[in-house]
Simulated assay, not measured.
Amino acid sequence: MIILCAISSAYTAIILGRCWIILQNRFPLYREHVPYPYPAIGYEAFGNPGKYIVSFCVLFTLFGVSTVFLLIASENIQSLFTGGISFCAWLPIIAAVLCPFTWLGTPKDFWPIAVGAMSATVLACLLMFVQILMDIKINPEPQHSNTTFKKFFVAFGTILFAFGGHAAFPTIQHDMKRPSNFKWGVIWSYAVIVLMYLPVATSGYFIYGDKLDTNPNGDSILSLMSPGGITTTVTVLITAHLTFGYIIVINPFCQQFEEALGVKPGFGIKRCIVRSFVVACNLFVAETIPHFGAILSLVGGSTVVFLTFVFPSLFYIRLMTMEDDGNKPVIIPLYERVIHYEIILIGIFGGIASTFSAIDDMASGASSFTVPCYVNASAAHL
């Protein structure tokens, strides 16, 4: 599934890049600065409905990703500091610490944070793989649970979440000196990502087996790794990545929210209030669903599926075959059409199944930490 999702996601990323090139060739206004390129592609393909649907999916994805980052960071910090502070109590502490950093401008103003986040992830994946291999001796005969319909599609949403960067791809391509070379950036980037994900995921599967299914500490494979210097270092590195990543991911969401409210660009009290409110909303969702795997599967199986599988192929077919302003439709070869239709159908069916499975997983109580933090706190107080 990891390999198939990576190949499919890389292909649709290249297709999305072609859509942006079409817009730049047809409409000179898109050669200048465009704050939201993906919704612009939706607009030129299907008008305002396409623009608004894409905008919603992008915002929902960014909000979900930032919530997941907040949850995992809290879980990691709880494991590092084994004092009396609970996982739920760490959430507001971390949110309060990160909140002032969200008041910064745009990602171009703090690009070193992205470099630091990526470096931390590469080193963490390497160390995780080493530690997992070292754990073979403590779990020589791992057991594996049977795969069910719900488990398969929850996994589908989770894995696709890992390759769901399409919301930002048109922005990256637009800022490139040579946008036509975007496909090579996609190919090399996905190759590096697979080299990081695949060893950790497969080694964890073959060595830990179904221990993760019954793990009382949630979905994180870190909680199954033997304690020691390597595990502690990995936890610190991943936590650093998550805190850096939170500042980056929440920023575009805040910018669009500010634009909708009419807040002028530039640092000011209104920006601080709006972005603090967004962080507070993040915190409320995290306290309500304090199980990052559930949110990860829900976002990955819903909006990420549409942004990754459905929209790129759908918009590409529409832009290539539409006739307006003197542009003649282009005939797409039959084999290419079949590929696009298959991707769209897989995306729609997989997205519906993954979303249903993720919601059912949360509603049935199959996930750990399903009870909201404030419910637990109220019960403890009573």
Rank of each mutant, 00 (worst) to 15 (best):
M1E: 04
C5G: 06
Q24F: 09
Q24W: 04
N25W: 05
P35V: 09
P35N: 12
P35W: 07
K51T: 14
Y52M: 13
Y52L: 14
S55I: 13
C57I: 07
G64M: 13
S66E: 14
L80D: 14
T82V: 06
I85C: 04
F87I: 10
W90S: 01
I93A: 10
I94S: 02
L98P: 01
A114C: 05
V115H: 06
G116Y: 01
M118E: 12
L123M: 12
V130A: 06
I138R: 13
P140K: 15
N146W: 12
T147S: 10
T147Q: 11
V154T: 13
F161Y: 12
P170M: 14
K177I: 06
I187M: 13
I187K: 06
S189C: 12
A191T: 14
M196R: 04
L198E: 07
V200N: 03
G204N: 02
F206T: 09
G209Y: 07
K211I: 11
N217P: 06
L222F: 04
L222E: 04
M225Y: 07
S226G: 09
T233M: 12
T235A: 09
I238F: 06
F244Y: 14
Q255A: 09
F257I: 11
E259L: 10
E259Y: 13
G262A: 12
P265S: 11
R275G: 05
V279N: 03
F284A: 14
A286Q: 05
T288M: 14
I289K: 06
S297L: 07
S297K: 12
F309E: 02
P312R: 02
P312Q: 09
S313I: 14
K328D: 01
I346Q: 03
A353C: 14
S354K: 13
F356G: 00
I359L: 15
I359D: 00
A366T: 07
C373A: 05
N376Q: 12
A380I: 13
